[in-house]
Amino acid sequence: MSTAISARGLVKRYGAVTALDGLDLDVPEGTVLGLLGPNGAGKTTAVRIFATLLTADAGEVRVADIDVRREPNKVRRVIGLTGQYAGVDENLTGRENLEMVGGLYHLERQWVRHRASELLERFALVEAANRPLKTYSGGMRRRLDLAASLVAKPAILFLDEPTTGLDPRSRLDLWAVIEDLVAEGTTVLLTTQYLDEADRLADDIVVIDQGRAIAQGSSDELKDRVGGDRVEVVARSMDQLADIEKALASIARGSAVIDPDQRTVVVPVTGGTGTLLEALRVLDSAGLHLDDIALRRPTLDDVFLSLTGHAAQASQEGS
């Protein structure tokens, strides 16, 4: 299996801000790589460099084995990009947008017309095809945006936070579409702030923080590294937080996180729902009163906390 996207020692600075600080990554052909990180981690900067919109200050990038810096136009023929901001024209209809993009890919008009119909059908936009985009909902617009990046049947697709700002239903729809594309053999690099999105779509996840890859692996591997699931307890009163932490120490697989404002204690655990019963048992026998208790999957915050020691807050805007 050959490498569709590879980056070595990627550096990009904006004045005093270092957006990328020696990023390395490889995406094998036909796989999905999830680039996971908080706002300002450098995800968008990386995608913009891969998609020829920005040039790196240092490092080497190859897309489809073409040097991005040397032959950007050759790269543009084989990639599709869906950015965070809709790359479509508000005043054109859905069909016009797709045909415009096809024309700018220098594809034959007849072929483009046909391809546009195919995509409109696939993305359930046939009825809206001849309406200006102004009348589209957010989800429809995202779907059209994705369709626009697929006009030339690109072998490599970049999706920059494809579902940010979408309602849950549209999000699920878009996931299904991306899964179809992957099944057809498209290589996808997607950035996301959501672990569940990376979990569902990506074969491999690179966690990125302050412009550097801090962890890489499948979602299971990453979750194991952050210590599996979490038991989250909401105490009835503030003064029991420490006691709760002490009681849960017997089942915890790592250090607890206490949030006095929310009156919560969160501990990493392994072993599924059985652990929840165990937790209830130890808390009950210690005579502690709870408002709520839950077992949940690790979130991006948990991953960050355990990998970096700091929370996944937006470090620096402007990636």
Binding site: L104, H106, A148
Partner: peptide
């Protein structure tokens, strides 16, 4: 200020267009 320019710049089109 809009995403459409990113779209244009990611396409193999003439840069003067």
């Amino acid at each position: 200020t809009k995403g459409i320019l990113d779209r244009f710049r990611s396409l193999p089109m003439s840069s003067s267009a």
